[in-house]
């Protein structure tokens, strides 16, 4: 690794305007070395602009940033030596095979022909792309393509990795595979900046979170802190028999002192609570009434609820293909 800085990425007051549109209106962020920062926000919140600046693809109109201790504008070349970019920020060549894409990047980084080939083989194996290695990337499935993107960003052993919505449009199996890879990289000491629209993904991978909205950071902190910031917990009870829904609702009303919402479709009774004191009462009453439940939980609000509470509007999701369409600009 090039530096022993405790802070891998630091940005102060980043501003970027496109004509009358303000993409970033003064963003500060800090990512300690070896940690994962999750950047959340809807389309157009400024996430991509921020990462493009940190990836030296774009210069800020105001503010400054260092990556690995190097200034992203004045020492862009140094920054490029330690970073890896994926997906929307930097694509692979769809008209070449996976193997050739990786070998080409190796050659560009100065590997000899045989080293580049060896490195490509190594990455194809690691990302389970050996069989598809000689097919052109256009023919890859969504999951394979995402793995190739990730492999392409890792050719030069970056110590800092930018991941752009790495699992958008992937099925749960492929998604878990990408998550595992990211966790492995972090274990090896890689610093990761991850943008995502999936709150679940940020919750699963990130050490700390930032929520972007309209070019500003509207909240930041550890996932649990953000959840607590959004307020109340909720008590969920799921009876085994749908027929018991009303009786469960009555028990919860009595124990908590508030009328719960009853979700008939999901067979779920849910009520906001300020603490967990009513939980034992509910358990005892259910037991006395002889009602079996499949789920009884006191949970923190979901990150979707957090986002709504922080920004005053829901995190709209765009269709998966729109994410790919917007690439490169």
């Amino acid at each position: 690794m090039t530096t022993s800085h405790q802070v891998a990425i630091e940005a102060v007051g980043l501003v970027k305007k496109y004509g009358a549109t303000t993409a970033l209106a003064g963003v500060d962020l800090t990512v300690p070395t070896g940690t994962v920062l999750g950047v959340l926000g809807p389309n157009g919140a400024g996430k991509t602009t921020a990462v493009r600046i940190l990836g030296t693809l774009l210069q800020p109109d105001a503010g400054h940033a260092t990556v690995g201790g190097y200034d992203v504008v004045r020492e862009a070349g140094k920054v490029r030596e330690i970073i890896g970019l994926t997906g929307q920020y930097a694509s692979v060549d769809e008209d070449m095979s996976g193997r050739r894409n990786l070998a080409m990047i190796g050659r560009l980084l100065g590997y000899s022909r045989s080293q580049a080939k060896e490195r490509a083989d190594e990455l194809l194996e690691r990302f389970e792309l050996v069989d598809a290695g000689d097919r052109i990337a256009k023919t890859y499935s969504g999951g394979m393509r995402r793995r190739l993107d990730l492999a392409a960003s890792l050719v030069g052993h970056p110590s800092i990795l930018y991941l752009d919505e790495p699992t958008t449009g992937l099925d749960p199996h492929a998604r878990n595979g990408v998550w595992e890879t990211v966790r492995d990289l972090v274990l090896d000491g890689t610093t990761v900046l991850l943008t995502t629209q999936y709150l679940e993904e940020a919750d699963a991978l990130a050490d700390s979170l930032m929520v972007f909205d309209k070019g500003r950071v509207v909240a930041s902190g550890r996932p649990a802190e953000l959840k607590a910031q959004a307020g109340k917990q909720s008590l969920d009870v799921r009876p085994a028999e749908p027929a018991h829904l009303e009786r469960v609702a009555a028990i919860v009303t009595e124990a908590v002192g508030a009328r719960p919402s009853v979700d008939v479709v999901n067979t779920l009774v849910s009520v906001p609570v300020s603490d967990g004191t009513s939980m034992p009462v509910v358990v005892r009453r259910l037991d006395e009434a002889g009602i079996a439940v499949t789920e009884l939980s006191l949970r923190l609000p979901s990150l979707d609820e957090v986002f709504l509470a922080l920004t005053g509007h829901a995190a709209e999701e765009r269709p998966a293909d729109a994410v790919l369409e917007g690439a490169g600009r």
């Binding site: 490029r80 930097a90 694509s91 692979v92 060549d93 392409a152």
Partner: peptide, 20 residues
Amino acid sequence: DDFAKGVFDRFRSLPIARIS
């Protein structure tokens, strides 16, 4: 086309000469 597809962003993110 290369620019639109993000391939050039890959090149620009690598420590290579700008002219290459």
